[in-house]
Nucleic acid binder design. Structure first.
Lengths: 84, 84
DNA sequence: TAGATAATTAGATGTTTGTCTAATTATCTA
DNA sequence: TAGATAATTAGACAAACATCTAATTATCTA
């Protein structure tokens, strides 16, 4: 779960996930929501991708990012077990 | 939620939470479960305490740590909302 | 096929993090 | 009250991180 916790340990990356919850977005559209540079956003997207929290799919010139919540199941299970 | 994610973003700290799930423990007992130095464990406990994931209570010479799962509710809510 | 656009990769930099040893504080007990 | 034990705080250091600008790659279109 290291990669997931690492990915979630940043407010920008969590905000990206919140955006993608609403709908899939191109990398540029995501970047437009933040003050930081595009390469930085690209780096954040890479960490989210490493954690498999998002999936990237090229569509011609663009790359579409979408949320993948299945990897959260393990995390959720761990948290709930801790609460029991 | 910054402090919670920060606290959870370390395998040692997550292991400490798993230990405390079973029963309350003194700082020294916790340290005995790991290879790293006591001051390092103390630092980890401090971060967990800052996140309010654990509560510390002095009992004479010792300090007893116990799990506090209520702060996980917000986190759980966020995760579940993301999955909807 | 040349120029424009979308996005990533490379390389640099200041900050945060995890760890250590040494020093300090708090408590107990002979 | 002096010495021992439990735990933290202080200070240092290497590794990891977030960010930036510049360069590169991939694709589209006139």
């Amino acid at each position: 779960m290291n990669l997931i916790f690492k990915a979630l340990n940043d407010p920008t990356r969590r905000a990206i996930l919140d955006l993608l919850k609403e709908k899939d977005l191109m990398a540029g559209d995501i970047a437009d929501h933040f003050e930081i540079s595009k390469p930085s956003i690209s780096h954040h997207l890479d960490l989210l991708k490493q954690a498999e929290l998002v999936v990237a799919l090229r569509e011609g010139q663009f790359i579409k990012y979408s949320l993948n919540t299945t990897v959260m199941d393990e995390l959720l299970k761990w948290l709930i077990k801790l609460k029991e």
